[in-house]
Design a protein around this nucleic acid. Structure first.
Lengths: 184, 184
DNA sequence: ATCTCCATGTAACGAGTTACATGATTAT
DNA sequence: ATAATCATGTAACTCGTTACATGGAGAT
């Protein structure tokens, strides 16, 4: 149940319409909490029912741009939610499942897949580094900036980790493939 | 759509009943693909319909232990699935959302939450290190063992990353809190 | 006029979660 | 006998995904 609070947060930062929200998600919040525009519309409807956000123009049906903003009640709800406590979820990684299955049915072409992942992670890492260079110049910063930097840093560290892991995996798999060939 | 294939994998490694599967998930596969026993029962039913797994005793209703095993068709399906290609999903982390919201409604007690997460990740890291010491002694190993080690290694690296990140976050937050106090 | 975007929305489904129900087995 | 536990299962719900439908605005 985090999407509603992600939306209130985004609307507190700046009021905007559903589609703009979807686009902003793609650029920032979406890096650690993805959502499609359908999810966003559905959730905005619920948030409005709850009285946590409000849309400006009278609801004249489809095709009309509706600009939402967060209400005081939304801010209160957000404050309550920030104080909640949840255990971190265990990771969920399909590639690890595939590797485990590969041991049983392989050898297969998993190396290609790992290579593909490696490239995706490298691209994300490069993107995050750009953002860091642009938005977080070295030197002291306010508490707010430091927290935002921490969040970005988690993304940087994760992508770097996956780049490192993928390279290692490729190395291990190629050497063990060579050994298998020797054994024949 | 990964759970069915996780189940086929587990049943190929060793046939067992639904509840045993649930327990084995908690111990191994569950570290990177969690599932509850309800999910597992539902999925086993579907897998049996599909003809990918079979249960031994005649189906005499509730309370009767049913031991499942993977069928050749299941193995084929697994082989097909291992060859599939999917982009890695972007991370999804509620704590990052909370931090982003905290900037707007804070300062709050997020540090306590980060501390809690830190302890969870330290515990998982210790567990994975135990498993590594027990199951992966140093020295050459077969391709299978190396792949299994790679999977465990991803878990180790991730938990170590979160420990590192949490410690850093606590340091940053405590120093910026001190500065805020100075400013008053 | 009609075409192409922009913007909002519906519908249907699959996956995951939570709470609970029921039959079998074992221990006391 | 009955209570605890093992084992399987139902039901109801939320969240996320995919495909598609509809209305409005500007361009040619």
């Amino acid at each position: 149940m985090s999407l509603p609070h992600a939306l209130i947060t985004a609307l507190m930062e700046r009021p905007c319409s559903g589609l703009e929200l979807a686009r902003r998600f793609d650029l920032s919040i979406g890096h650690f909490w993805h959502a499609t525009h359908q999810q966003i519309y559905r959730e905005l409807g619920r948030l409005e029912e709850q009285g946590w956000v409000a849309s400006l123009p009278p609801e004249t049906g489809r095709g009309r741009k509706k600009v939402y903003r967060a209400l005081p009640a939304g801010r209160e709800e957000l404050t309550r939610w920030v104080g909640e406590s949840r255990d971190p979820k265990p990771m969920r990684d399909e590639l690890m499942l595939r590797l485990r299955a590969e041991v049983l049915v392989g050898p297969t072409a998993v190396m290609d897949e790992i290579q593909r992942h490696l490239e995706v992670h490298r691209a994300r890492l490069a993107l995050y580094r750009e953002i860091e260079a642009r938005d977080f110049p070295p030197g002291d910063a306010s508490r707010e900036r430091q927290i935002q930097h921490l969040v970005l840093d988690a993304g940087l560290m994760l992508e770097a980790l996956w780049v490192e892991w993928s390279e290692k995996a490729l190395k291990v798999l190629s050497s063990s493939a060579a050994k298998d060939a020797d054994a024949e």
